[in-house]
Design a protein around this nucleic acid. Structure first.
Lengths: 417, 417
DNA sequence: GCATTTAGTTTTCAATCTGAACTATATGCG
DNA sequence: CGCATATAGTTCAGATTGAAAACTAAATGC
């Protein structure tokens, strides 16, 4: 497995290869990561910039080792010194260290109605974000990728003008993907199937390349790193799109499953006697909480998804009974799937994303009630939350994934690496 | 976290402590583990005993390093030389190496109707196995533990007579446990609640101590290491007991969940309009596939569980319609839960254990059919299997867990450790 | 009996961390 | 101002470790 995929593919190893033998040099690699992680972690308070001495205390390494490691990281461009920091105490003031904000990663997303790209600096701050409306359903992958490449080059140009070097990127696509080969196995909503994307052309100069990810998983990760993840470390993320996607976050990491495709909440069975689903099964969650199910139950006439979604929003706001009960029904079945998941995997929180975000006030209470009915005492009401990031969650998750892979393999940029 | 808990608690870390800083000595620790793992893995063919040179080739370490590492492992008593092995080729014959069969771990189980203890040598061979019938339901924990201690001391005496040194042990209990504190949070079938067990008294001289585990999880692990796990690396294990327990094996490891209590398949929701469950929910799998549910649906009169189970077996064998359809119904709901699990976690196999083992020929086809109905193409019929170990799965899993923790921390027995 | 082959050991060397000594630079007090 | 003190960071010797290569040991085969 390439290092660039580690953050998303942790569980998809397959156990093929025995880990490389431990050499003395590996200790340094591990310690480079440790120092960098410690620096990233200390960043929660933006005013406090740890010094070499702080990092030594935090990591347990000696000052001598930390100095040497930091020197390598500075040479690699990952860490920057930022003036002396004085505590007001006596003694020689330390030199503040921070993740180099002149290095960044690009998050990209192809969705049904739009494409987007954004730049995250190493500290995790979103510096640039561009979205382009684009009806991608049924469009040839080459055309969409060309459009995205254009958007990305705008972002890259702006980054370059600001002196920022791009190290890697992540692309989120709504479908089943194979990250290792950069192939979209199937993306029903785009009508793509078995498409090998030319990922290398998006960011030709980035040393970590561009990695392909599933959109719902990315949204779950975006939520983890830049949204609710600050409070929740283990949760089920359910993303309402055309279907119902999802992601499992366990111990602040995405659980990708043995084949890298876990989180298909939409096809959990929530009603054995329910209608047939497009997957060939019966009573899948998607047949109750997918867009089409909600729209038709609410009596919303056919049309473009965004129009119908807006219409649903209006009807909910005005208290239209059919709309309210359609959403409540979706929430009830979401709660059933969440109850089973919580029991099975010992999870204690649920985050609702995608179009469920807009239905939050109407759907969340139904989920809470359903959880109380079907798994009392397992998920407390305060741990049913609505996504904080909305539409940018997947893009930020894709960028964050790339960011993590950089921070997990700094040695790829050091001379010794 | 204590090293002895690693194998079962991998997912329950909580992420509290930053890993210890990497020192040069840690490389050796890692390589000791690597060599030992390579030796254990090579053991699949019992006639082939790898030599130092073989291990060097397998691990990627140099012959010199392997020689030095093996010397430490021999000193620690974990590895033994076993005569020269000649390939019939030219050249100096190598010295065969094997896991020292004079070192062992003890597996223990407390269940509703019996207690048992067994000795596994480091190679994973079950050397001793004793079971004692004992109605433990409602008995005070001290009394049951005293009985178990007696059984264990018999096993220990026999091991000692054979020159085998016991390094550690694992105890499986049917209930929610906290391994870190050695406490049984609740074991409904034993009527235990919040009981702190005196684990240290069971094997006072074992350097790795005794670790407490959940019985269904242990059974899943026993199946993994000594049963179907040889073929399946990712599966849902469903154990029929009074309730319905389970375990998730992902990448040949137990998935314990963030709180260490994953695998509660019995309380997944399989029928939203179903009857109330003892957990307070509705339509849980347990209300369809638990012992009581199957017995009453089959029209088997109240009585002792073992008698009723035998009666059910007879009726199934003679093709009694009520019994057959009761078991088929349980299988259908098992299949629904398995379908949801397979979809959610991207699993592709199901192993039925506990009392489902005895119903195998009647229940497995129903599970297969249900999976085909609710998650077509996800779990192939050949990947629905019945446990191979039966009643000893949990005991062997508990022992195997201890064995793994020894092999994962050999440095605890070396002078350098 | 000697070349050849393979197993395992010994020796030398480079990488790396630790720990202690040392240098650099601030504060605070007389 | 000058000096004690405190903290940051660097330098250097020492210990541990694995790699690489040379070396010894013990077999086969002609």
């Amino acid at each position: 497995m390439k290092a660039a995929e580690m953050s998303l593919e942790k569980n998809a190893d397959g156990g093929a290869g025995r880990p490389a033998p431990g050499r003395v040099e590996d200790v340094r690699r591990g310690n480079l990561v440790r120092v960098l992680a410690s620096l990233a972690e200390a960043r929660t308070d933006p005013d406090v910039r740890p010094t070499r001495a702080d990092l030594a205390a935090r990591t347990g390494l000696t000052k001598a080792s930390v100095s040497s490691l930091v020197a390598d990281l500075v040479d690699a461009g990952l860490v920057a010194e930022s003036g002396t920091t004085r505590d007001g105490e006596r003694g020689r003031p330390g030199v503040g260290l921070e993740l180099n904000s002149r290095r960044g990663v690009v998050g990209m997303e192809i969705n049904v109605d739009y494409i987007s790209a954004g730049l995250l600096d190493l500290g995790g701050t979103l510096r640039i974000h561009r979205t382009l409306e684009s009806g991608n359903r049924g469009q040839p992958p080459e055309a969409v990728m060309a459009l995205l490449a254009g958007l990305v080059s705008e972002v890259a140009a702006e980054a370059s003008a600001a002196g920022t070097v791009i190290l890697g990127g992540g692309l989120a696509v709504p479908g089943l993907v194979d990250s290792a080969s950069g192939t979209v196995a199937s993306a029903p909503n785009l009508h793509w199937r078995g498409v090998a994307l030319q990922l290398d052309r998006l960011l030709p100069d980035a040393p970590f390349g561009t990695v392909l990810h599933n959109e719902a998983n990315c949204a779950a990760l975006g939520e983890l790193w830049y949204g609710h993840g600050l409070d929740f470390h283990d949760y089920l993320f359910v993303s309402g799109e055309v279907g119902v996607g999802g992601g499992l976050v366990i111990g602040s990491e995405l659980f990708a499953g043995p084949l890298g495709q876990a989180g298909e909440v939409g096809h959990m069975v929530v009603e054995p006697s329910g209608p047939e689903c497009s997957c060939g099964g019966h009573g899948c969650l998607e047949t109750y909480a997918g867009q089409e199910a909600i729209f038709s139950e609410a009596g919303i006439p056919p049309g473009s998804p965004s129009v119908r979604l807006a219409m649903l929003g209006e009807q909910l706001a005005s208290g239209e009974a059919a709309a309210v009960s359609a959403v409540a029904r979706a929430g009830r079945y979401l709660g059933i799937a969440a109850a089973s998941t919580a029991r099975l995997m010992n999870l204690s929180a649920v985050v609702l994303g995608g179009h469920f975000t807009q239905m939050g006030p109407w759907i969340a209470p139904a989920v809470v009630r359903s959880l109380a009915d079907y798994a009392p005492g397992v998920v407390s009401p305060s741990r049913v939350a609505v996504s904080e990031l909305g539409q940018s969650a997947a893009m930020q998750g894709a960028a964050g994934s790339s960011l993590r892979s950089v921070l997990a393999a700094p040695f790829r940029l050091t001379p010794s690496g």
